[in-house]
Design a protein around this nucleic acid. Sequence first.
DNA 1: GCCATGACGTTCC
DNA 2: GGGAACGCCATGG
Length: 129
Amino acid sequence: MNPFYHRIYRVIRHIPKGRVATYGVVARLAGRPGAARTVGWALSALGEDSDVPWWRVLNVSGRISLAAQHHSAVVQRALLLREGVKFAPGGTVNLAVFGWPAEAYDTVAPARTRAAASRRSPRLKDSRT
DNA sequence: GCCATGACGTTCC
DNA sequence: GGGAACGCCATGG
């Protein structure tokens, strides 16, 4: 197993009970910003008997990424509810409240900063003429 | 090594 | 706030 996976699991294990983190944040804390999809891969590779609280990982929208009918999705929601995480009517979690680490969801700063940082490609898709 | 896929994220409309 | 498009990283064929 790659050390990167190990770091991902270690980060997830650091998520406090009753709090949630997003794939992107986990990837960043694990040392690979932008590798959110890889975090999903690492989680899918987990066994049910692992000691990794995978259910505390949501996507940036505060929603469970799994298909609603997926067994794990039901389990995930139940586990979070049991830990005190509240779901909004839309089935979303307020990351500003339950997000961990809190500074990652400050809702004030990071968005703009990261946006500027990822502005590497001028996106030349409009070659229509 | 190239191509396709995926529990994702960000930007633009 | 939602949908479409592109990028990202790792895995599998």
